[in-house]
Design a protein around this nucleic acid. Structure first.
Lengths: 208, 208
DNA sequence: GCTAGAATATGAACTGATTCAAGTTTTATC
DNA sequence: GATAAAACTTGAATCAGTTCATATTCTAGC
C-alpha cells in the first residue's frame, strides 16, 4: 500500500504541533522541553528533528497558517479598498496582524529572536514582512492612481515607511506587557494617520 | 589598604570585556564559548557570572559605551539643529547610530535577540531606543516652535513614527548582509524625507 | 599580626537543545 | 512472500551556558 509512509508522516507532524500548542500554552516556550513535546506526541526526541529543524521552528509552523490568513485578508481588501486613503492603510495593516493575536507574545518574542539568530529561520520568518510591504506598495499605487495621494512620492518607499511604523509598534507591544493589543492598535491607527498627513508645514512642501 | 577589592573587580571586568572583544571579532559570538573567554581573561567560568549575568549581557556592556556616545552626539546636535527640518531629523538619527557601526552585525543580532527573550536584558537594551525617541520629540517640538512644522501634529507621535522607520531599516540592515551600512543610511535619509514630506495629496490635508 | 566574617573565585555538576550511530519499518522488485 | 535498499525512528552521547557548594582572598576590628 503506497503512501503509508506519507500519511504516517503527516500524522506525526500534526501530533508534534498539537503537543507543542498545548504545552506552550500551558507552561510557555522556554519551560517546555523537547522531551516534554516528544513524550506528549508519543515520539522520541530525535524524531521531532526529522520534522522540525529546531525548537523555534515549531513556533514558525504554528504561526505560519495565521500569517498566511493575514496576508490573504490584506489581499482581499486590496480589491476594493476603503475610500479614505488613511483608513485604507490602517485597515490593511490591522487585517494583516489580526491573526497574530491568537498566539502568546511569549511565542512571538522567541520566534522573532530565533529569526534574528538563525539564518535558517530568517527568511521563512521575514518573508511575511516582505509580502506585507509589497501589499502596502500596491495599495499606495492604487490610491495614487485614484488621485488620492501626491504623485511625486515613491510608493515603494512609502510602503517601507508605513511598514516601519507598524513593525516598531508591534515590537513595542511584544516587549512591553503593559502595552495591550488594543493600545497597540490604537497607536497604530494614530501613527498611520499622522504619517500620512505629513509633518511639514504646508508652505514648505512641494507645490506652493 | 581599603579598595583593593574594588580595583581588582574593575580590572577583572575589563579583562573579560577585552577577551570577549577579541574573541567575538575573531570567531563570532556563537563560536566563542564562555570557556574561551574565561581562559583568555585568566578567570574561571563561574567568575564571569559574578560580573555579567549571561553571555549576551557581555555584548550589552561592549555596546553601551557606543550607544551613549550616539545619544550624546544627538543631544549636542539638538542645541543647534540644521536649518532644514528634514536634514535636522536625518542628522539626529544618523549621529545616534553612527557608533553602532563599530560592532559586527553578528553581535547586534545576538544582542537584539537576547533582549527579546530575556526580561533581564530588555530594559537595558531598549532604554537607548526610548531616549532616541525622546530626543526626536524634543527636536520636533523645537522645529515646531520655529514654525517649520505643522503645529497641529503631536511631536511625541511624530517621533514614534520617525523612530519606527529608523528601527525597521536598521533591523533590515542587521538581517540582510547584502544591505550595507551605506545603503542603510541612504534609505534612511530617503525615507525620512518622504515621511516628513507627507504622503497625502495637498488638497486632502488640513487647511485648504 | 591575628582572626572572624564577608565577599569573591572556582570548576565540577546540571540542564536542555541538538546530533548521530544503530536499530526498525516501509517500499519496490522479483 | 522473500529480500535488499531506502527511509525513518530511537535514545544515549555531545555540547555549551548556567548554577552552586566549596575553597580562597580580602577587610576590619582587636
Amino acid at each position: 500500500m503506497a503512501g503509508r509512509r506519507e500519511s504516517q508522516k503527516q500524522e506525526r507532524e500534526a501530533r508534534v504541533l498539537r503537543a507543542a500548542t498545548v504545552l506552550f500554552a500551558r507552561r510557555g516556550f522556554e519551560r517546555t522541553t523537547m522531551q516534554d513535546i516528544a513524550r506528549r506526541a508519543r515520539l522520541a526526541v530525535g524524531t521531532i528533528y526529522n520534522y522540525f529543524r529546531s525548537k523555534p521552528e515549531i513556533i514558525l509552523a504554528l504561526v505560519q497558517r495565521d500569517t498566511l490568513a493575514g496576508l490573504e485578508a490584506g489581499e482581499a481588501m486590496l480589491k476594493d479598498p476603503p475610500g479614505d486613503p488613511v483608513v485604507a492603510v490602517q485597515t490593511l495593516l490591522e487585517e494583516a496582524v489580526a491573526p497574530f493575536a491568537r498566539h502568546d507574545r511569549d511565542l512571538w518574542r522567541e520566534l522573532t529572536a530565533a529569526a534574528l539568530r538563525d539564518p535558517g529561520l530568517t527568511h521563512g520568518f521575514f518573508a511575511a514582512d516582505v509580502r506585507v510591504i509589497a501589499l502596502l506598495a500596491a495599495l499606495l499605487r492604487e490610491l495614487s492612481a485614484r488621485g488620492d495621494l501626491r504623485a511625486d512620492l515613491d510608493p515603494g518607499r512609502g510602503a517601507v515607511c508605513l511598514y516601519g511604523i507598524f513593525f516598531s509598534l508591534w515590537m513595542g507591544h511584544l516587549i512591553d506587557e503593559s502595552v495591550t493589543y488594543e493600545t497597540f492598535r490604537a497607536e497604530l491607527r494614530a501613527c498611520v494617520a499622522l504619517a500620512m498627513h505629513g509633518y511639514l508645514e504646508r508652505a514648505q512642501g512641494g507645490s506652493p
